[in-house]
Amino acid sequence: MKSLEELLAIKEKAQAQIAARDAEGNDGIRVVVGMATCGIAAGARPVLKALTEEVEKRNVKNVAIAQTGCIGMCQYEPIIEVYEPGKEKVTYVQMTAEKAVKVVTDHLVNGTVVAEYTVGAVTE
């Protein structure tokens, strides 16, 4: 049962993690998913869900996932953007849930950009 007790336990665990994160003072990575009509129609929701689940599964703590509106490139939706402090923004296009999992494991966990999914690779 997804009870309120379970939510309380989640809250306590998250509070401890947030405190640890703040103590380390590390700037987090921000991942945003385009959620305009075209993004939603192209599959942004399962991409966002896969990102969330993989971040949770891998216990990645310094990543914040957010939504944004139109990114301005309908034909390349679903699009996600990765903002890392001190680095250039990375734009991944034509995303799927499977690709999102790879972005988490390779890029967010191991710091290796998945070049083949980037807008640069696709528009070449």
């Binding site: 997804k2 939510l7 989640i10 809250k11 998250a14 689940e53 914040a64």
Partner: peptide, 23 residues
């Protein structure tokens, strides 16, 4: 109110909400 400042965007929270609604 229950989360008391823990963001709703925490992956574990988001997954709980979905599971709760499914039930």
């Amino acid at each position: 109110q229950i989360l008391d400042g823990v963001p709703l965007s925490e992956p574990s929270v988001m997954m709980w909400i979905e599971g709760h609604l499914k039930e």
